[in-house]
């Protein structure tokens, strides 16, 4: 399993447009990626490809999340997702 952390850059947090951009990108991947707040148990992680699940996390601007996948070849894909999270889509 590999994981990455990212700080949410969008001012509205991870919902609405930022969530749909991120879920869309995660849905395009071969690998199944989960997302959770950093420090929260892995069981509470939700599917990164579900905008509704992302919205349910209620992650706000400036919070740190962790992305995980069991697919060890998906490092670059995770990096790409991190870049999406660390871009302010409301600017």
């Amino acid at each position: 399993m590999i994981e990455r952390t990212a700080t949410i850059a969008s001012t509205v947090g991870l919902h609405a447009r930022p969530a749909s951009i991120f879920a869309d990108a995660a849905g395009e991947l071969e690998a199944e990626v989960s997302i959770a707040r950093v420090g929260e148990p892995a069981e509470d992680a939700v599917g990164a490809d579900s905008m509704l699940a992302l919205m349910s996390l209620g992650v706000e601007h400036g919070e740190v999340v962790v992305l995980r996948t069991d697919d060890d070849s998906a490092g670059e894909a995770l990096d790409a997702l991190v870049r999406i999270l660390e871009t302010n889509h409301d600017a």
Partner: peptide
Amino acid sequence: KEVLEATALMATDPML
């Protein structure tokens, strides 16, 4: 447009 795009995504959302 953005609202419609986000709503489109809900229709196939894995959670739902």
